[in-house]
């Protein structure tokens, strides 16, 4: 009896999740009247703006990941090693982007870094690019920091550092060649989430007027019927791939740790 209810709850729930995915896939294939075809995808792939915005967002995602790693890994390492009493505060700060809506943060950027301010980032094309990377880094901060910090917890930071120091390593060597390789998996899982977030992000890019994938999708959605569904399938594929890869690498990490 109980099991029956459990199956019912699960199946009804899953139906809710599967229907939209089926719906968008189905819709994306129906561009040609009366038969299934990949016309919508062909249209999307033929659109030069798709290529421009998609590659722009990929670049932004990669830059965000690189910046995020440079920002988060040394900080998380340093806090664990030398300033452990700061950890709760840092953790609280890194969770703030979940509390403050992205639209509010980017609103702040626009007002704070406008052309007449001391740091007129919104005044130039490169400036807004930088601002967008920083914005994305802020949005991904909760995921990146938590992933890296969890990764650091599994290794003995102090001992590793002392061992490296006793062998004559400097800070750059320690972080780059000892700490980073040991938290690769954590960094990668943070990176995949960041990638997924950046590829789908709309608000910041739209309000900073950047030609990113998110605003492009929205624009296409307002003007076309079938292509948006194809884009949704592609976007879902990206999210699925990113998070699937993340699960995969974190499973890879766990296996070698078990024996000993």
């Amino acid at each position: 009896m109980k099991r029956l209810w459990a199956w019912a709850a699960l199946i009804i729930g899953l139906l809710y999740f599967i229907l939209p995915l089926v719906g968008m896939t189905n819709f994306s294939l129906k561009m040609r009247r009366g038969e299934y075809s990949f016309d919508a995808y062909a249209k999307v792939f033929a659109d030069s703006r798709f290529h421009e915005t998609f590659s722009y967002s990929v670049w932004m995602a990669l830059l965000t990941i690189i910046f995020g790693v440079f920002l988060v890994v040394p900080t998380a390492y340093w806090v664990r090693l030398k300033l452990p009493f700061l950890r709760p505060y840092i953790e609280f700060i890194t969770l703030l982007p979940l509390v403050i809506p992205a639209i509010v943060i980017v609103f702040g950027y626009i007002r704070l870094y406008n052309t007449s301010s001391w740091l007129p980032l919104t005044g130039s094309y490169v400036g807004t690019d930088i601002l967008l990377v920083f914005g994305y880094a802020t949005l991904s901060l909760p995921y990146m920091y938590r992933a890296v910090d969890t990764g650091l917890r599994t290794i003995d930071v102090t001992t590793l550092t002392e061992a490296a120091q006793s062998l004559g390593a400097g800070w750059v060597t320690i972080i780059g060649r000892i700490i980073l390789p040991n938290v690769t998996v954590a960094v990668m899982s943070g990176a995949f989430v960041t990638f997924a977030i950046v590829m789908g992000e709309f608000t910041m890019a739209a309000l900073l007027n950047k030609p990113a994938f998110g605003p492009y999708m929205q624009l296409l959605g307002a003007n076309r019927a079938y292509e948006p569904a194809a884009l949704a399938v592609i976007a879902f594929g990206i999210t699925w791939a990113c998070l699937g890869l993340m699960q995969l690498v974190s499973r890879l990490q766990k296996t070698p740790q078990r024996p000993v």
């Binding site: 968008m24 992000e201 569904a229 949704a232 976007a235």
Partner: peptide, 16 residues
């Protein structure tokens, strides 16, 4: 939980 934003809206438009 990460599949939010624009594509999610498209998926539901194509369904409902």
């Amino acid at each position: 939980s990460n599949f939010a934003g624009v594509p999610l809206a498209f998926a539901f438009l194509a369904t409902l």
